[in-house]
Amino acid sequence: MHDVQSAWVYILRCADDMYYVGSHRGPDPTARVAEHNAGLDPMAFTYKRRPVKLVWAGEFQFITDAIAFERQLKGWSRAKKEAVIRGEWEALPGLARCRTPRPSTSSG
């Protein structure tokens, strides 16, 4: 038995085809997925989008790293999340989207 619990970041596919990104501390994320499907919190994002299905999970040694990656992943586009689900990490830089318009380079 380990003294340190694993930390997980996971992606769920909801019944309405939306993705939900979350984190969990424990031996594996399946217990947390079961909680989402049980609908314990009527205010939760997944409550009206059940059933949910676990489509990706990544394990982290430290909860702080898991929370940081969860926040990053939540800000990513659907295309980037789907690349993670497929394990296509090398595709991520090409899927990055520019959030600020670039200035014009016309000379005048």
Results as ranks from 00 to 15, higher is better:
86 R>Y: 00
69 F>G: 00
99 R>T: 14
99 R>K: 08
58 G>W: 08
80 K>W: 00
93 P>C: 12
105 T>W: 11
76 W>V: 14
40 L>A: 10
16 D>R: 12
106 S>L: 14
2 H>A: 09
65 D>A: 01
46 T>S: 08
81 K>I: 06
21 V>E: 03
2 H>V: 09
94 G>T: 05
29 P>Y: 03
38 A>M: 09
28 D>Y: 09
94 G>Q: 07
47 Y>C: 01
7 A>T: 14
32 R>V: 01
87 G>Y: 03
80 K>M: 13
62 F>D: 14
49 R>H: 13
44 A>T: 10
57 A>K: 15
20 Y>S: 07
39 G>V: 09
27 P>F: 02
27 P>I: 06
35 E>S: 09
24 H>Q: 09
42 P>G: 03
10 Y>H: 05
83 A>L: 05
28 D>M: 03
19 Y>C: 10
39 G>Q: 07
28 D>L: 02
61 Q>E: 14
26 G>Q: 10
64 T>E: 03
3 D>C: 04
12 L>P: 03
13 R>C: 00
19 Y>H: 15
78 R>L: 05
50 R>Q: 13
77 S>V: 12
15 A>M: 01
63 I>D: 06
106 S>T: 12
5 Q>N: 06
46 T>I: 03
15 A>K: 11
87 G>W: 03
25 R>G: 04
73 L>C: 06
66 A>G: 07
62 F>C: 04
95 L>S: 05
5 Q>D: 11
17 D>G: 01
81 K>R: 15
93 P>V: 13
